[in-house]
Write a protein that binds this DNA or RNA. Structure first.
Lengths: 122, 122
DNA sequence: CCGTATCCGTTATGATACTG
DNA sequence: CAGTATCATAACGGATACGG
């Protein structure tokens, strides 16, 4: 039977990677870095995300104390999401990875092309 | 229809996160940091990994030029995996995230517990 | 020893439609 | 506006057996 996944490594880095490893979390954190956003505005800003996935992603971030959720006293009511202090500090760590990625993107693409070409010759 | 996923963000950080976001890649990089390992030795070292997933993970890392694969001239033949220079530099970037994770693990767990408890009161 | 091939269950997530 | 409910599907990863 597949997927027991019950080996609890108690590995902090896995906790983090399980969170930021998915497709949307990082994009949301990136967007929220500059300014707070309302739900639908954010949904429009992040190309390709569905309301469902945005809701799921924001809920997870909120649960971890990385994003705050504020109900504005307007009519109709609006909800504003912003990075918490902890969220900002995570952004910093993610940014390091982003810089590494930029620095190495070209090299990685080259490696991939070489690797694929080497196998192509059956 | 679900899962088109064809929105190519051309976002370098997504390239990286797609690689390290899975369950095993980071564990492999961590293991290889200290010393090179042979396939089966590595398989025994990393608790819970199957030969299949180790092979898949190593292949991806090799393709990206992060890990080198050396066939030793022994009998029976052995294969040794090691981090390349690029792999070592990725380890550095991942390490930043690891430190963040350690520093924030307790706070995150507290936030999660609080969040879950708040919802429990139906 | 070093993997690869196959099968298949679980999970993640996209689309869509609907509610407060 | 801010989400939630439902459904279907594609991708991930585990078990197992086998090949070089």
């Amino acid at each position: 039977m597949p997927a027991p996944r019950d080996i609890d490594y108690d590995c902090p880095i896995r906790d983090v990677l399980d969170r930021i490893g998915d497709a949307w979390t990082v994009l949301v954190i990136l967007k929220l870095k500059r300014q707070p956003w309302r739900f639908n505005a954010l949904c429009r800003e992040i190309e390709g995300i569905s309301p469902r996935m945005l809701a799921v992603t924001l809920r997870r971030l909120e649960r971890d104390g990385l994003v705050s959720r504020t109900i504005l006293d307007t009519s109709p009511p609006q909800v504003e999401y912003a990075l918490t202090q902890r969220g900002v500090s995570l952004h910093g760590a993610v940014d390091v990875l982003g810089c590494w990625a930029e620095d190495n993107q070209a090299g990685i693409r080259k490696s991939r092309a070489d690797f694929d070409q080497a196998r192509e010759r059956t």
